[in-house]
Simulated scan of single mutants.
Amino acid sequence: MKNSGINVRKVWLQVTGPINWSNNVATNINFISGFIARAKTYGITVGIYTSWYDWQQITGATTQFSNSDGLWYWSAFGQGPDAEGVASFDDFRPFGGWTAPSVKQFALNEALCGLTLNRDIYPLSGKEEASVVFELKDKLTEKINVGGFV
């Protein structure tokens, strides 16, 4: 991306779907560690996107990444508007060494004006309020190969 003039400052590593990860916790931790280390060599910070359950299943609840650049957790009851979680951080409980989240995804795969999107909430800097944002999802998933990691 840098060779194409795209300045990436931060990426979020998705650590979800335990069935898609190794059953070996050490292998998963090594992958995450390697991903973060490789990103840092390019000056890119890495946040973690996960949930309490996914993190426990995939990493054995390790706390070694709690100093990563943010936690984006998801908490929804399924897909669509009838399965939304709460649009607040009231349900957050510390896990993996994180004591506060940066972002929360509370709705998955909702349709709006012909688009499929997720709904997220994040705290406004220095305020108790929160803002709801929409995250557009492409129908195609693109994989970006970052130094050997896909």
Rank of each mutant, 00 (worst) to 15 (best):
E128R: 11
S125D: 08
N3H: 11
A26E: 14
P81H: 02
T62M: 02
P81F: 07
G126W: 02
W12K: 09
P94Y: 04
N118S: 14
K137L: 15
E129P: 00
S66W: 10
P81E: 12
A130D: 03
N67F: 04
S131T: 09
I44Y: 03
S22W: 05
W55P: 05
G17D: 14
T116D: 01
A111K: 03
G78W: 01
V146P: 00
G47H: 06
N145D: 12
N109C: 04
V46Q: 06
A76Y: 06
Q14T: 15
A107V: 06
R38T: 13
A61H: 05
S125F: 07
F106S: 11
V46P: 01
S131D: 01
K143S: 03
S75H: 15
I58Y: 03
F106K: 13
I48P: 15
V146D: 05
N7K: 11
N23F: 00
L117N: 10
E129R: 06
M1R: 07
E110M: 13
F92R: 07
N28F: 09
K40R: 15
A76M: 07
W12T: 12
Q105Y: 00
V46I: 15
T41R: 05
A61R: 08
I121F: 02
D90G: 11
V86E: 11
P123M: 06
I36C: 06
D120K: 04
F31C: 10
D82N: 10
L112V: 14
G147N: 01
D82V: 08
Y49G: 02
G126I: 11
N109M: 09
G70P: 04
I144C: 07
T99N: 12
Q64F: 01
R119V: 02
S131Y: 04
Q79A: 11
W74V: 12
V132P: 01
S102H: 11
T99S: 11
T141Y: 01
W74S: 12
T50V: 07
G147Q: 10
F35M: 13
Q64D: 03
I6A: 07
A111L: 12
G114W: 03
Q64W: 00
G17Y: 07
T45R: 10
L117G: 04
S125H: 00
N3E: 08
I44V: 15
G97A: 01
A130C: 05
P81R: 12
G148A: 06
I6Q: 09
Y42P: 00
G60F: 01
G80T: 05
D91N: 13
N30S: 15
L112H: 08
K139L: 11
N7C: 13
V15G: 02
A37M: 10
K104D: 03
T63R: 08
K104N: 05
R38N: 03
F77C: 06
V132H: 02
F149L: 04
F92L: 03
N24I: 13
M1E: 13
A100W: 01
Y73M: 04
Q79N: 13
A87C: 10
P18I: 11
G78K: 02
F134V: 07
R93M: 05
K10R: 15
N24K: 09
K137W: 04
L140P: 00
F92Y: 15
I144Y: 09
C113L: 15
I121Y: 00
F31E: 11
F65I: 07
F35A: 15
D69L: 03
D54L: 09
T41K: 02
